[in-house]
Structure formats: structure tokens, C-alpha cells
Design a binder for these strands. Structure first.
Length: 359
DNA sequence: GAAACGTGGAA
DNA sequence: TTTCCAAGTTT
């Protein structure tokens, strides 16, 4: 699948011209610091620009250089990342910073192979960083580019089924004279003109070449990936109070879902069980303590990427036993004043807010 | 190759 | 309310 050479030249020219006139002014585009560009690329994985900007700014205030990041402790890093999601990104960023300081004297590597070997950096992020920071002609294939290119060639299958062809196309198109601007332009086109629903084809520089547009199929391409329905779990959650007015929280294991974040203990409701029984059992299994389940605090819905949960939150009274971290990394008794120091996932933040309102 | 991995906004 | 999906990577 290769385009005529004339078309490639004209596609580059028209896109770069469009970008020079209408490209977005984003914070990281004003920087030539590979560290800052790297941070932005990681934050932007599966995350919209609008969401990233405030995190990006407070991150750079906390960690102005890669050395500040390398020397920070992981809990501080996770606290700054709190609410952004995909927390492995923060853990990998921290590990990367330490590796780059040791292995590359703190200078982000130039070699594609070296970049790809860093944790949390795949082909698209590597191309994004190397083209943006060092102006190297490395192609990208993020969600925007997949959609733009799928429409350009009127791809008849979901992009996930044609990754090889799409990468080849992105390789063929990237302008080796202006790789930084070209890749940024391609993503801007997808984000602002060639949008998922109702694209603004009247403002597109590629209407002369876009096969989907020429066939009037732009609303049907790209084809949808098949998605399975999300399982739904009912969860019982305990806010366990002791006589000193402290609450018991636990730190999740370092890997996996919400790894390294803190939470209120609890777990999945089993068949034939009441919520009170569920919470009492889960607390016994996770922490080896006796509690009494008291008043209902709140019920909240939350959707993760691959399942949904209903959190049924109850106040509990600590009765006996020394809490053990049987299924967590660490446990702590904390007051409501101390609790803000710990990174919590979004659903738990809502519980904390409710506790503070009631007190 | 499929599933795991967060959250928010739009329709 | 539900579904889609956004600057993807890892296992």
C-alpha cells in the first residue's frame, strides 16, 4: 500500500501549510527541553490535551528537571499524578528518570532502540518524543493518526486490524525535512478537524486526497473495533473508625490496578451475601480484624476501562485484632486531616469528600 | 493477539 | 443512561 510520490509531496506541503496557519499553541510546543516533552508525551497517552495541561504545569513546578524527578519518592510522584489515571505511567516515569540519570547522565537518549527499551515508552511515544525534542524523522501512530490515515485511504477494516499498513503509511508520509512539525500537524488535524464524529471536512487541507471524503464515507470510517460489554461488580467498602477517631486505609500492591495508591478496604459481594456480611468478611480476610458494620455512608458508581463497579460504603467500628497487610503493601490509621497526604483513586476521593462534609 | 490498565467529556 | 474514545503500552 504505497501512495504516488507526487501525492506524498503534496500531502506534506498542504498539511504543513495548514499547520503553520492553524496549529494549536500548547505548553510543551514552546519547549525544546526533551525532559518537558517526554513528560507531556507520557501524560498525553490516552488522555486529552485539556485534561493534561494543569497536571503538566504543576508537575514541572514540582519536578523542574529530570534530577528532581529521579530523587523524589514514589508516593510524592503518585500524589502529583492522582486523578490522571493509568498510574503505571507515573511509576514508569519515576523509574525511567532514575535509569536515564544513571545510564545516560541525565540526557534523554537519541537512539530509537534506546528509547523503546525504556519502560512505558512504545513506538508512538518514542516517535513523538524524538521528532518533537530532536527533530528526528520517526513516525507515529496514535489514535488521531490512525483515524486520519484510515480516512485518507478509506480503510475497510478497523484500524486495529491494519496496524502494519498504517505504520507503513505513517513512515512513508513523515517529512524528513520537517519531522517535528509534520507529526504535530498530523495529530492536530485529527484532534481539531478530522474528529471521530462529524469531522469538519470543509476546513481540511486533504480533501483532494481523502478517499473517505471523496466517497462520502467520512462518518463511517474508521470502522469500529468490536468491544465486549463491561462486567459489573458490586463492592462493599468499610470506613473503619477506631476510638481515637482515626480511619484505617491500605496501600494497594505496587503493580496492577491502581498500584501504589491508597484505598478504603473492602471487596466484591458474593452470591447470597448481604453487604454487611461482605464487608465484615473482606475486612477479616484482608486485615485479620473484627469490625462492626454501622451506618450506610454512600453508594457510588464508577467505570474503569474494563469493568464497572458500584461501591457501597459503610461506616464501621473497629473491635479487635492487630491489623495485618495480608492483601496490601501497607496499612495506616489516619485522621481526616492527614489523609490528603496520600494518593487515592478517584472513586475513593469522593468518599473522602463525603467524610469531610459530614464532620 | 487479547486483555489489563483510569478518568472525563461528548452525544 | 449508555457508549464511545482520547497524543498507548505491557503482558
Amino acid at each position: 500500500m504505497s501512495l504516488p510520490k507526487f501525492d506524498v509531496i503534496e500531502l506534506r506541503r498542504s498539511l504543513l501549510n495548514w499547520y503553520a496557519q492553524t496549529g494549536r499553541n500548547l505548553p510543551w510546543r514552546n519547549s525544546s527541553d526533551p525532559y518537558q516533552i517526554w513528560i507531556s508525551e507520557i501524560m498525553l497517552q490516552q488522555t486529552q490535551v485539556k485534561t493534561v495541561i494543569p497536571y503538566y504545569q504543576s508537575w514541572l513546578e514540582a519536578f523542574p528537571t529530570i534530577h528532581n524527578l529521579a530523587e523524589a519518592d514514589l508516593q510524592t510522584v503518585l500524589k502529583l499524578w492522582q486523578g490522571l489515571g493509568y498510574y503505571a505511567r507515573a511509576r514508569n516515569l519515576h523509574a525511567c528518570a532514575q535509569q536515564i540519570v544513571q545510564q545516560y547522565n541525565g540526557v534523554f537518549p537519541y537512539e530509537l532502540e534506546a528509547v523503546l527499551s525504556l519502560p512505558g515508552i512504545g513506538r508512538t511515544t518514542a516517535g513523538g518524543i524524538l521528532s518533537s525534542a530532536y527533530n528526528l524523522p520517526i513516525s507515529i501512530l496514535d489514535g488521531n493518526v490512525k483515524r486520519v490515515l484510515a480516512r485518507l485511504i478509506a480503510l475497510s477494516v478497523p484500524p486495529g486490524k491494519a496496524l502494519k499498513s498504517l505504520w507503513e503509511l505513517s513512515d512513508q508520509l513523515v517529512d524528513s525535512n520537517h519531522p517535528r512539525e509534520f507529526n504535530q500537524a498530523l495529530m492536530d488535524l485529527g484532534a481539531t478537524v478530522c474528529t471521530p464524529k462529524t469531522p469538519n471536512c470543509s476546513e481540511c487541507p486533504w480533501t483532494l486526497y481523502c478517499q473517505a471524503y471523496l466517497l462520502n464515507l467520512q462518518s463511517q470510517i474508521p470502522m469500529r473495533e468490536i468491544s465486549s460489554p463491561l462486567p459489573h461488580k458490586i463492592i462493599g467498602v468499610g470506613v473503619i473508625w477506631n476510638q481515637q477517631g482515626q480511619i484505617l486505609i491500605d496501600k494497594r500492591p505496587a503493580k496492577g490496578l491502581l498500584g501504589g495508591l491508597w484505598e478504603f478496604p473492602g471487596g466484591k459481594l458474593e452470591a447470597g451475601e448481604t453487604l454487611e456480611e461482605c464487608i465484615k468478611r473482606e475486612i477479616q480476610e484482608e486485615l485479620a480484624i473484627e469490625i462492626e458494620v454501622k451506618d450506610h455512608l454512600m453508594t457510588l458508581e464508577h467505570a474503569y476501562t474494563h469493568f464497572k463497579v458500584t461501591l457501597n460504603v459503610y461506616h464501621c467500628r473497629y473491635i479487635s485484632g492487630e491489623p495485618q497487610p495480608l492483601e496490601s503493601d501497607e496499612i495506616r490509621w489516619v485522621t481526616l486531616d492527614e489523609i490528603d497526604q496520600f494518593p487515592f483513586p478517584k472513586a475513593n476521593e469522593k468518599i473522602i469528600a463525603a467524610l469531610k462534609n459530614n464532620s
